[in-house]
Amino acid sequence: SYYEILDVPRSASADDIKKAYRRKALQWHPDKNPDNKEFAEKKFKEVAEAYEVLSDKHKREIYDR
Rank of each mutant, 00 (worst) to 15 (best):
R65W: 10
V8I: 13
V53K: 03
S11P: 03
P34G: 10
R65A: 14
K37V: 13
A14K: 08
E46T: 05
R65Y: 13
E4Y: 09
A25N: 06
S13Q: 06
K37H: 09
V47T: 04
I17F: 04
E38A: 14
K24S: 05
I5S: 05
E41M: 14
P30Y: 05
P30Q: 06
A14M: 14
A40N: 05
R60T: 02
V53I: 11
A50I: 03
E4A: 12
S55L: 04
E38I: 10
Y3V: 00
K42P: 03
K37Y: 11
A25C: 14
E49S: 07
E41Q: 13
E49A: 12
K43D: 02
R10C: 13
S13Y: 04
K24P: 00
D7Y: 03
V47F: 05
D35C: 13
I5C: 08
E61H: 07
H29Y: 06
D64V: 01
S13A: 06
K19N: 12
E52W: 13
Y21M: 05
R60S: 02
K43I: 11
A50T: 01
H29E: 08
N36Y: 08
K45C: 10
E41T: 13
L6G: 00
R60Q: 04
I17Y: 01
S55C: 07
D64M: 01
E41G: 08
H29P: 02
D31N: 09
D64P: 01
L26V: 07
Q27V: 07
D35N: 08
Y63D: 03
D15K: 11
S11Y: 13
K45P: 01
A20F: 01
R10G: 06
D16Y: 06
R23I: 14
I62P: 03
K24Y: 05
A14S: 13
S1A: 10
K57C: 09
Y21W: 10
I5L: 09
K18W: 10
Y2Q: 01
H58V: 15
R23L: 15
Y2I: 03
Y63S: 02
K59F: 06
Y2G: 01
K24A: 08
V53Y: 04
A25G: 06
Y63R: 02
K42Y: 13
D56I: 03
R60N: 02
R23S: 12
Q27G: 03
K24Q: 09
R22Y: 15
H29L: 11
K42I: 14
I5D: 03
A14E: 15
D15L: 13
A48K: 13
Y21R: 02
Y2F: 09
Y3I: 00
V8W: 00
Y51I: 02
R22T: 14
I17D: 00
I62F: 07
I5W: 09
D16E: 13
R60L: 02
Y21E: 02
K59M: 08
R60V: 02
A25H: 11
Y21H: 05
S55K: 09
E46V: 04
H29Q: 10
E41P: 02
K43V: 08
A12V: 04
R60F: 02
L54M: 03
D7Q: 11
Y2R: 02
K59I: 04
A20I: 01
V8T: 03
A48L: 13
N33C: 07
R22G: 12
K19H: 13
V53G: 03
R10K: 14
K19F: 06
E52M: 11
E49Q: 09
N33E: 03
V53M: 05
A25F: 13
H58R: 12
R23C: 11
K32V: 11
A48W: 15
E61Q: 08
E61Y: 10
F44L: 14
S11V: 06
S1P: 04
Y63F: 04
D7L: 03
E61V: 06
L6K: 01
L54E: 01
K43M: 12
D56V: 04
A25L: 14
S13N: 11
Y3N: 00
D64K: 02
I5Q: 04
A40L: 05
L54W: 01
L6W: 00
E52A: 15
K57L: 10
A20K: 02
A48T: 13
F39T: 07
E61W: 08
E49D: 10
E49P: 01
D56Y: 02
P34D: 08
P34K: 13
I62L: 15
R65M: 15
A50S: 03
E38R: 08
Y3H: 01
Y51R: 01
V8P: 00
W28R: 01
A50V: 03
A20D: 02
D7E: 13
A20G: 05
E46L: 11
K19M: 12
A40H: 05
S55D: 04
Q27H: 09
D31H: 07
E38Q: 12
P30W: 04
V47N: 02
V53H: 07
V47G: 02
L26A: 14
E41F: 10
K57N: 12
D31L: 13
A25E: 11
K18Y: 14
E52S: 13
W28P: 01
N33F: 15
A20V: 01
A20M: 04
S55V: 07
K45N: 14
K57E: 15
W28D: 01
F44R: 08
D64N: 04
D15V: 09
E41V: 11
R65P: 04
P34M: 13
N36M: 10
A48I: 15
A20W: 01
H58N: 15
R22D: 15
S11R: 10
H29S: 13
D35L: 10
A25P: 00
E49K: 13
K32I: 09
F39P: 04
E41A: 14
R23G: 07
E38L: 12
D56G: 03
P9H: 09
S11Q: 12
L6C: 01
E61D: 11
F44Q: 06
K32R: 14
V53A: 04
H58P: 04
D31M: 12
F44V: 04
V53F: 04
E41C: 11
A14I: 13
D35E: 14
P9I: 05
I62H: 11
K37P: 09
F44A: 09
L54A: 00
Y51E: 01
R23F: 09
Y51P: 00
E41H: 10
A14D: 14
L54C: 00
D15F: 10
E4Q: 12
E61C: 11
K18Q: 15
D56M: 03
L26T: 10
A20Y: 02
V53N: 05
D56W: 02
R22H: 14
Y63A: 02
E41D: 10
K19A: 14
A48M: 15
N36H: 09
D31E: 12
D64W: 01
R10L: 08
Y3P: 00
H29M: 10
A50Q: 00
Y63V: 02
R22S: 12
S1Y: 08
Y51N: 03
I62G: 05
K59N: 05
R60C: 03
R22C: 14
E52V: 05
I17G: 00
E4I: 10
Y2T: 01
A14V: 15
P30T: 06
V8Q: 03
A25Q: 14
L54S: 00
S55M: 05
F39C: 09
E46S: 06
N33R: 05
R65S: 15
I5E: 04
Y2K: 03
E49I: 10
L6E: 00
K18G: 09
K19Q: 12
F44E: 03
R22M: 15
L26S: 14
Y2E: 01
L54N: 00
W28V: 03
P34W: 11
W28H: 08
I62K: 09
S13E: 05
W28G: 02
N33Q: 05
E49V: 14
D64F: 02
P9R: 07
A48D: 06
A20E: 02
S55W: 04
K43E: 03
E49H: 09
V53S: 03
R23D: 14
E61L: 08
N33V: 05
R60D: 03
P30M: 06
S11F: 12
K42R: 15
A50D: 01
R23Y: 13
S55H: 08
Y51D: 01
S11A: 11
R60E: 02
A50E: 00
R10E: 06
L26R: 09
L6T: 00
K24H: 06
Y2M: 07
Q27L: 13
E4G: 09
I62E: 15
R23P: 03
K18R: 14
L6Q: 01
I5N: 03
D15E: 14
L6S: 00
S55I: 10
F39R: 07
P30L: 05
L26Y: 09
P30S: 06
W28C: 04
I62N: 11
A12N: 01
E4K: 11
R10V: 11
P9A: 11
K59C: 08
D16M: 12
K59V: 04
F39E: 13
R10W: 11
E49F: 07
A25D: 03
P34H: 13
Y21D: 00
K32A: 15
Y51Q: 01
P9Q: 10
D15W: 11
K45Y: 07
Y63I: 03
K43A: 07
W28S: 02
L26G: 09
R22E: 15
E46I: 07
K18T: 14
S55T: 05
K59W: 05
P34N: 09
V47A: 08
S13K: 07
Y3Q: 00
K18D: 15
R22P: 02
Q27E: 11
